[in-house]
Design a protein around this nucleic acid. Structure first.
Lengths: 199, 199
DNA sequence: ATTATCATGTAAAAGGTTACATGATTTG
DNA sequence: CAAATCATGTAACCTTTTACATGATAAT
């Protein structure tokens, strides 16, 4: 997948592995993160397959830049990948939900605390996403040649991140409420047998 | 991660790899899918680490069942894993969004068609999720010893799937609308120079 | 003075996917 | 009579993560 993300960017413009990582960071990373080391080895693989070519641009006082560009067969391969319609929903993996689901041995209080922490993280995440991606869009507009469609795709991707984040926040709030209800019920039950009585 | 999912189930009750896969399918799979082959190799790994133990239950006319159960050190390890608070948001990977983002060379019509296909898949997915997981909850209630908290966690996990699916459907509808607007504008622009005129 | 940015990579390990291999029984 | 379910696994491959390694310059 990273393979095609890189190819897609290189079709817009030749650039280095380092550049690619930064572009991804302000766009795709919210749905497909990429480590720099992974970018470098994938570029090498793409070059072995003849889908990209690189040339070295010497620099003083900095490591030389290795600038990659997509080859004609790179474009062909990319087109072959993007053309067919997807007819299955992607499996997603959310490690946090595994933990949550398996939290039966934790106290409801602990789970609520955990959810509150997570909520804070998502709020922060939402702000970062808005800023990073919006900045990315503006930079892309002034960097790449583009049709009007491309900023739309870029912004729709940002929007997807926004909607997902908001959905998580809704889920967290709902779930905290449910856990609090559960606690209240337990308490009520526990109070009844000894019959509540004031001093 | 699968490692702890398996341990978590085995702490509720001893069972086989096959059983584990089925339980996961009606619960966690929506946030952490597991192939049967992966379940088997992970169980083997857990056994090597002494976190689970297995014994063979002979059967006639069917392969013998290898029943796994969590060991005391399995419980310790699981508790150590579940206890600490998570303080970072999980990266998620959504292959479809990578394609979408890179669809600049496709026609808006194609992208809309693709989104409509996806919408149908999500609607179906939502129904399956509701049924599978609800059935799973009922079965879990009658199979595992449990506190009242556990059905709550199970159902909250179902709800997370529901909210995510709904968020995707909203996103798809929004995005189709945006693409249609984009098409209308292009058409208007194209119509202007010859100046629109009626018969 | 320290941190962030620019800029390159390598190597080992972990985790997951896909394909292969087998075979009886139950359900539609 | 065909397909799904029960039930076990192995092997090769692919992708990603984490850790290591280097080093100058610009910004705070």
């Amino acid at each position: 997948m990273l393979k095609y993300a890189l190819l897609g960017f290189l079709l817009k413009q030749p650039m280095t592995g380092y550049d690619l990582e930064r572009w991804i960071r302000s766009s795709l990373s919210y749905f497909w993160p990429a480590q720099l080391s992974q970018v470098y080895r994938t570029l090498k693989q793409l070059e072995d397959e003849g889908l990209v070519a690189s040339e070295i641009a010497p620099q003083e006082s900095r490591p030389d830049r290795r600038v990659y560009s997509a080859t004609p067969s790179g474009l062909t391969d990319f087109a072959k990948w993007i053309t067919p319609f997807v007819t299955e929903i992607d499996a997603i993996r959310v490690p946090f939900l595994v933990r949550f689901f398996m939290s039966g041995i934790r106290s409801p209080d602990d789970i609520i605390t955990q959810l509150r922490i997570l909520r804070g993280l998502y709020v922060k995440h939402e702000e970062e996403l808005a800023q990073d991606v919006s900045a990315g869009i503006e930079q892309a507009k002034s960097t790449f040649p583009h049709t009007d469609l491309e900023p739309l795709l870029w912004d729709a991707t940002r929007r997807a991140g926004e909607l997902m984040t908001q959905a998580w926040i809704v889920w967290i709030d709902e779930t905290i409420a449910r856990l609090q209800d559960y606690q209240k019920q337990r308490q009520t039950k526990a109070d009844k047998p000894p019959s509540p009585r004031r001093k």
